[in-house]
């Protein structure tokens, strides 16, 4: 194990680190938005959209991200849609994460007692008002544990981006190993790189989860 080799590789890992963070952030944000919309379609049983969402969730959850990425990166140009690897990666992450987030939100919304909905209706709230003031705040608090687990999961999934040659953390490590064969050193940096992102994030998410739960339900 040579510290010098590690030190020399750090600038390159730093770039990969930033790219992993950036793509994770965009992908997760997109997945949360897509997931929320999907779960609302399902919660309110909106005709047609509900079926489309159902099919999307099955497709997305039951195919590997690797295959989804291949499809987007190599398949879409066949119908004239040529996107950069960077864009493909984010789209892939949103496509995969959207269904997981949708299931997370749905779990939360379904956890709201029916009596809450009825007491909201009883004071004359419209469907939209009911969603905004009762269903969403409570459902969101209930779904945080699932959403937090999905966030961690999606960040780890970005390591697959290496197959479409996006120079994120894993790709950087594999590239360096291929060039210089210092496998131990580069893998160590790789592991530390993910740990630096994931461990603090995991702690923050747990803290947030408790806070939001307490703020909403008081336990």
């Amino acid at each position: 194990m040579s510290w010098q080799i590690i030190q020399q590789s750090l600038p390159m890992f730093q770039k990969g680190f930033i790219l992993t963070l950036q793509m994770s952030a965009l992908g997760i944000l997109g997945a949360i938005i897509l997931g929320l919309m999907c779960s609302l379609c399902q919660y309110f049983k909106i005709p047609v959209l509900k079926q489309i969402v159902g099919a999307y969730i099955e497709l997305s959850r039951n195919t590997p991200l690797l295959i989804q990425l291949f499809f987007i990166y190599y398949g879409l140009p066949g119908i004239g849609l040529k996107l950069s690897a960077y864009t493909c990666g984010i789209i892939g992450l949103i496509f995969l994460g959207g269904s997981y987030m949708a299931e997370g939100f749905s779990g939360g919304f379904d956890g709201i007692p029916n009596s809450q909905i009825e007491s909201g209706k009883a004071i004359g709230l419209s469907q939209g008002q009911l969603t905004r003031y009762v269903v969403f705040p409570q459902g969101f608090a209930l779904s945080i544990p699932a959403l937090a687990a999905n966030i961690i999961f999606l960040i780890k999934e970005t390591s697959i981006f290496t197959v479409i040659a996006i120079p994120e953390l894993t790709n950087t490590a594999l590239d360096l190993i291929g060039l210089y064969y210092h496998t131990n050193e580069y893998l160590l940096v790789l592991v530390v790189g993910y740990a630096i992102i994931l461990i603090p994030l995991s702690i923050i998410l747990t803290w947030l989860e408790r806070r939001i739960r307490y703020g909403t339900f008081g336990d």
């Binding site: 009596s115 009825e118 009883a122 419209s126 909403t216």
Partner: peptide, 28 residues
């Protein structure tokens, strides 16, 4: 039509004032 339920069903995410004024402000 006012309705009161067996299990109270106040909104846990809102304080007492907001529980009471939600209907008057948003609906009426």
């Amino acid at each position: 039509i006012g309705m009161v339920f067996q299990s109270y069903d106040l909104f846990p995410n809102l304080n007492i004032m907001d529980n009471i004024t939600l209907g008057p402000i948003k609906v009426q």
